[in-house]
Design a protein around this nucleic acid. Structure first.
Lengths: 123, 123
DNA sequence: TATTGTTATACTCTATAACTATA
DNA sequence: TATAGTTATAGAGTATAACAATA
């Protein structure tokens, strides 16, 4: 999955982590830079360059928060929304290819069995 | 899996990549350093330090090949075999924990379904 | 001339500490 | 005093190029 994704966007400045940021910002527009970083397990210090990249690419907008002038509110630009939708379409294409040999019943059986697997670390 | 593994050997000089080397050398004793690197997708240049570490830890033996004096033949020491067995036992414990909620029938169904998934990249 | 192991080196990712401006 | 973002920096991991010894 990761390899297919990286290959698709290889000739592009986009990387998986940048799509992660776009995804969180899209789900919770207006969230602060630090909170987005926390949601993704990224250190605030390392978040700076990532946000700079996305702003430079015109994919997110960074505005100072009205109520806390230390913080930045992040939101997607139209180009950012379009880029995120492209990534989601790529993910769907990948899944379709992966699962092409399974019937609908087999797919749901697979999901049910996977759900029964014990998450020993983060769940 | 990776996290569980790393946690188990955290207070140890062992890392996943070193177990990878031990595993390949154990399966094909006498293989050259470069071939082991190739089997693991490691560059020859980066292999040097890894083999040095394992030799210093007393886990592998490095001898010059009789037929090609440029090459090193790698093989496991007794301590290396013991370390590899420890890792395999840890992997088995992890799998047992993961699959504790599945019956034998469910486990084989799961494996059969996973086998039907289309490998889009490396298979 | 080609190959094995080696060294030097650069680039990415990630982690910590210290700074600034606000709160 | 604490927090949000920033900067500088250090450590892994991994990539390439050039070299000596051997084929």
């Amino acid at each position: 999955m990761r390899m297919d994704f990286a290959e698709t966007f290889a000739e592009t400045p986009m990387r998986q982590v940048l799509f992660g940021v776009l995804s969180v910002v899209s789900a919770m527009p207006g969230l602060s830079q630090g909170k987005v970083a926390e949601a993704l397990g990224i250190r605030r210090a390392n978040m700076v360059a990532l946000v700079n990249e996305l702003v430079d690419l015109g994919l997110i907008a960074r505005t100072t928060d009205h109520r806390d002038r230390r913080a930045f509110s992040l939101s997607l630009t139209q180009a950012g929304e379009a880029m995120l939708h492209e990534a989601l379409a790529q993910i769907r294409r990948h899944e379709d290819r992966m699962l092409e040999n399974l019937t609908t019943t087999e797919r749901s059986t697979l999901v049910n069995l996977l759900r029964k697997i014990h998450g020993s670390t983060s769940r």
